[in-house]
Design a protein around this nucleic acid. Structure first.
Lengths: 215, 215
DNA sequence: CCGCCTCAAAATGTATACATTTATACATTT
DNA sequence: AAATGTATAAATGTATACATTTTGAGGCGG
């Protein structure tokens, strides 16, 4: 098993909530688990650090990222900026074929609602929304920021209780795309993301139910 | 010499134009140069890949990034989005102390105009503009995108011939900050960045003087 | 003359062994 | 008992040696 595969496996575990934010990853343990030496494990950890999944300080143990409230707030501000712009670009380029792909992604996420695959399907839907923008780098940034959020959501055990509301947002986003209503789509998306932000913020350890307060 | 230092030294060389886009970096050569084994060199290369300075594919040689015209176009689109937003946030938080820091950075970049230190001073000025935004993550993204541009500018041997115009833009940006004119500042910044983009695009190998054409 | 295959040289990937740094537990002191 | 210093254990960083993959040159055939 090579560094890439190890990184992918670890990332799946981390975004799935098997490790919570701040938890340590020891090279030796991981090497044993995958039956390799520590060298490819080190490479894998570097890759995860590059993807923003773990934090790596020389001579210290690797840790799953753990963001403060204000850091999470900035991440969501960046998501609002990048995803809104991406959606605008996307709608401007959107063909009927793209609409079809979004419809399929919506149906798929409908099936996976309330299951453990929800997060994956949710991302697939948004990716289908953003892909027509033809902005691969921007899309990668968005995916990375979303992964950051997901690690915290999974790590703090936030259940997908509001899945219905989110599915509803998705359906309305699709409608806005069908009619090429840029502003309407961006409005829906903005509320969608702000909603997710507040859900996460109020579940943060230390802050008890303070939806978007201090910064 | 450890991985961090090696990465920093290599990055300085690359953004300084010692390597041009697409050029190969061989682990063995670098290891000899710094009198270490290939292990810390590999770590350094991973760090540079994480910073977006080189491209790293398993079993292949490391290469300095080399972006196509459309990729560079996307990078500038992202810069326009992120830097404009950052400047707005910054001006909203800006104190007189911050203004003073911008004034000093402007004076410093004035001194370094037309020297090889221009690029560093230019970044210092923009950093002083953006720092009051209190968006460290957004600032890091901007710095990374700018570094990407700088690698290509340096690698294709674009001389700082238009430095006076850019210094003028900086002075006008400072004025706009003094009067807290968000829109005016963003307008100046937008033209400033678009100007730099067109300068780079028309110097790209393969495209001869086509300022912002196909995408 | 161009394209393709083969094979040796070179570069990257990995395991093992060892050095260095960090962390934990324990004893000591106040 | 709390705080501090020290020693032992554990984890990370690096060098060397070897396996694997890529690459590039040369020869072969079209």
């Amino acid at each position: 098993m090579s560094a890439d595969k190890i990184a992918d496996a670890l990332e799946t575990d981390i975004v799935g909530g098997a490790y919570h934010p701040g938890e340590e990853l020891k090279q030796g343990k991981i090497a044993d688990r995958f039956s390799v030496s520590r060298i490819p494990v080190r490479d894998a950890l570097q890759l995860l650090a590059a993807r923003g999944v773990i934090e790596l300080v020389p001579n210290k143990r690797a840790r799953v990222i753990s963001l403060s409230a204000s850091e999470i707030d900035e991440v969501y501000a960046l998501r609002l900026l990048l995803e809104s712009d991406c959606l605008r670009q996307s709608i401007q380029n959107m063909t009927d074929i793209d609409i079809g792909a979004i419809e399929r992604a919506l149906a798929h996420s409908d099936i996976d609602a309330k299951t453990e695959r929800w997060a994956d399907s949710d991302w697939e839907f948004h990716e289908s929304l953003y892909r027509p923008s033809k902005r691969p780098r921007q899309l990668a940034m968005i995916e990375s920021l979303r992964k950051t959020c997901r690690i915290h959501i999974a790590g703090y055990g936030i259940l997908p209780s509001r899945t219905e509301g989110w599915l509803d947002d998705h359906a309305r986003l699709l409608d806005a795309c069908r009619s090429r209503s840029e502003n309407q789509a961006v409005n829906i998306l903005t509320r969608h993301i702000e909603n997710a932000r507040d859900t996460l913020m109020s579940a943060l350890p230390g802050t008890d139910s303070a939806p978007h307060g201090q910064a």
